[in-house]
């Protein structure tokens, strides 16, 4: 019997926020489980959810005609998945597939998206955490594209 998964406010993405901040960010929370192989995001579909991964691994995939499916990066428990809801046209830009059984919180993007009449600005705490996350991902991509293991690289 695996230990119970931590609650929403303990997820690394939200950890340290006040209950008010969490409730301002998180709405329409669903606890979802995906079997291995399931698609969490599908390229081109409407982007309306932020996933906070709680267990398992998800791989980001891109279909390249002639080359098949390319795996770009693995995300895992503690990571967040899906940011295309931030900006128009609000569509997923790649596929995300569960490599093994995945548990996640799904947050309704409509509560976070901004600026809208209802949310004139993005919640500052959320904005900083998204920036931090995107910056980390950017660093990883920079390193990954260096192809450091190539002979003579």
């Amino acid at each position: 019997m695996p230990p119970p998964l931590p609650p929403l406010e303990h997820h690394p993405f939200l950890r340290g926020l006040s209950p008010e901040q969490v409730s301002a960010i998180a709405c329409g929370i669903r606890e979802l489980s995906f079997p291995a192989g399931a698609l969490l995001l599908r390229e081109g579909e409407q982007a309306d959810t932020l996933y906070l991964l709680r267990s398992g691994r998800v791989v980001l995939e891109l279909n390249v005609p002639g080359r098949g499916t390319t795996q770009l990066e693995t995300l895992k428990a503690g990571d967040i998945l899906g940011l295309s809801w931030l900006f128009p046209p609000y569509r997923w830009s790649l596929d995300a597939r569960a490599v093994e059984p995945v548990d996640a919180f799904a947050l309704d993007a409509s509560c976070m998206r901004g600026p809208t009449p209802e949310h004139p600005v993005l919640e500052p705490a959320l904005a900083m955490r998204l920036l931090r996350h995107l910056y980390d991902r950017l660093e990883r991509v920079r390193l990954q594209r260096l192809d450091v293991y190539k002979a003579g690289a």
Binding site: V59, T70, Q71, E73, T74, A77, D79, R140, L143, Q144
Partner: peptide, 23 residues
């Protein structure tokens, strides 16, 4: 274990080594 470029069927991590540290 992680790789920069995965081939189809690979079920370990894809990405850079430092990213593994969060696990």
């Amino acid at each position: 274990v992680t790789v920069d470029k995965a081939s189809p069927g690979w079920t370990e991590h894809v990405g850079v080594v430092p990213a593994l540290l969060s696990d």
